[in-house]
Amino acid sequence: MRLLNIVSSPRGADSVSISIVNAFLDAYHRTCASVEVDTLNVWEENLPDFDSEAIGAKYKGVSKEPLNSAELSVWNRIQSLEEI
């Protein structure tokens, strides 16, 4: 089994939520030794900007609605991320 642990607190070692998750993962691993934990720390990744304009373009693009030129530019950028 694989489990995705998303670290979203910027506080790192000072984060209570990270400490709680780590305690859970340690306990879970003791009961299910075969679990593989993949951790994604959003503060260490080079993630693209995703604002309200991008979410609007995404909804229109997925729904096959017409996009204006700005939305089309954002939608093309979003789609290019699939190729990475």
Rank of each mutant, 00 (worst) to 15 (best):
N41H: 05
D26H: 13
I18R: 15
N46T: 02
I84L: 13
V21I: 14
L67W: 01
W75S: 09
S63A: 14
G61W: 08
N46C: 04
D38Q: 09
W43E: 00
S8V: 04
H29W: 02
S34P: 05
V42M: 06
A33C: 01
S9N: 10
I55P: 08
N68W: 03
L72V: 06
L47I: 00
L72H: 14
G12W: 01
I84C: 04
S63T: 03
S9T: 01
D51K: 06
D26V: 09
K60T: 05
N5C: 04
M1V: 12
V16I: 11
N41P: 02
N46P: 01
L47H: 03
L4M: 05
A13M: 07
A23V: 05
A23Y: 06
K60S: 09
W43V: 00
E83Q: 14
H29Y: 06
K58L: 15
I20R: 01
E71K: 07
V74S: 13
A27T: 09
S17A: 08
N46G: 08
S19P: 00
L40V: 02
L81R: 12
A70H: 10
W75T: 08
L3W: 10
L3M: 15
D26G: 08
A27H: 08
E83L: 15
D26F: 11
A27V: 05
P10W: 07
E53G: 15
E45W: 01
Y59M: 06
S63D: 12
A27K: 14
I6T: 02
E65G: 09
G61I: 11
P10I: 09
N41R: 03
L72I: 06
D49T: 13
K60W: 05
A54D: 13
I55N: 03
R2P: 04
C32K: 06
S9R: 04
F50G: 05
N76R: 13
A33V: 00
A70P: 00
S73Q: 13
V21Q: 13
Y28V: 02
V74G: 01
S63K: 15
S80V: 00
L25Q: 05
A23M: 04
E71N: 09
L40Q: 00
G12I: 04
V21G: 01
E71M: 09
D51P: 02
W43N: 05
P66W: 04
S69I: 09
I18L: 12
